[in-house]
Amino acid sequence: MSTTTAPAIRVQGIEKSYGELHVLHGVDLDVAPGSIFALLGSNGAGKTTMIRILSTLLKQDAGTATVAGADVATDPVRVRESISLTGQFAAVDEILTGKENLVLVARLRHLRDADRIADDLLARFSLTEAGARRVATYSGGMRRRLDIAMSLIGQPTVLFLDEPTTGLDPEARIEVWQVIKELATQGTTVLLTTQYLDEAEQLADRIAILHQGRIIADGTLAELKALLPPAIVEYVEKQPTLEEIFLALVGTGSKNEPSEDLS
């Protein structure tokens, strides 16, 4: 993790309403550079609204937010140069091949050597063998990996992932988790929203719980566990979880296997 003291993301007193509906009520949070920060909350808690404000897609009603040192309200262009955003559903073109999707984004960003950039990202995300196939043949995990690969074109320093594993099966979720962990080890700051408790537990260096538009807890997993009374230790025979059973039965499989639906 980076030793830089200035936060990659700083949010102070952010408020947002839609008419009479108050969505965010004075949200404060800091995200350290090169870390994975999970914004955890149920549906309607305000997670996506927070991401939209930080990515300059929506203006707050009050408060301030900076991303990579730039103010999201007064310097949105500089913020956009530093970030990338991956939404809840993979924004890939199913008619194009995996490589064509990557080349298209690289050219839209006016980058030189789009072919090399695409090939490098296909290799990085274990999609080289599938690069020449139409995305319509990809599994859910492959599409999400391609989506994240597309978001890294231009080397953003901050990556926003809005519920990145929504709708994925257990194997695909683990594939995406591995990608996110690798990004952080390479210095990318990741802010992800999720409603999955295990996802935040597996990935995050720090977790904030957003409830009814307010941050009600913010800390490391150990710090959050310390908020509850110590557990009573009893001997209980550990039983495998359903996810462990599923993965044991189906095996790891190949990352590049096509999905069953080839339409």
Rank of each mutant, 00 (worst) to 15 (best):
T56R: 01
D261S: 14
M1Q: 09
S35P: 02
R206D: 02
K47A: 06
A130L: 01
K99I: 13
Y18E: 07
R143S: 10
V103R: 15
L146Y: 07
E223D: 09
T128A: 14
G19E: 09
E15M: 15
R107V: 13
T220F: 12
Y235V: 10
G154T: 11
G141T: 00
V176H: 00
T48I: 06
K181N: 05
M150P: 08
A204T: 00
V236Y: 10
I215L: 08
V23Q: 05
S2G: 05
G213F: 04
A45T: 07
D119S: 13
R107A: 11
V103M: 04
G87Y: 07
A38F: 08
I180G: 00
L29G: 04
T48N: 09
Y138M: 01
P7E: 02
Q178T: 10
T165R: 02
A132K: 15
E244L: 01
D115Q: 13
D113M: 05
L21D: 14
R134I: 06
I36Q: 00
R52K: 15
R133P: 11
N43S: 12
L39R: 03
G98K: 07
R78S: 14
L249F: 08
T74Q: 11
E15P: 06
S263M: 13
K181A: 07
T74A: 07
R134F: 08
L146P: 05
D75N: 11
E94L: 09
H211R: 14
K99F: 09
E100W: 12
T157V: 13
L24E: 07
G213S: 03
K59V: 06
Q155W: 11
R206K: 07
F246A: 01
P76Y: 14
Q202K: 14
K238L: 15
S263G: 09
I53A: 06
L102M: 04
T48A: 02
F246H: 04
T4V: 12
M142T: 03
W177G: 00
T86R: 12
Q12L: 12
H25D: 06
V158G: 00
L183F: 03
I215E: 11
T220Q: 01
Q155G: 09
T189P: 01
T48H: 03
E260N: 14
G46Q: 08
S82F: 11
D30N: 11
A184D: 00
G251T: 04
A91Y: 05
R112C: 13
G154V: 04
Q178C: 02
M142F: 13
A231D: 11
T56H: 03
T193P: 02
D205W: 01
I215Q: 04
I53P: 02
E201F: 02
N43D: 13
G63P: 02
L57T: 05
V105D: 03
G167N: 01
V135G: 00
G253V: 02
R52C: 10
R143I: 01
I180F: 03
D218Q: 10
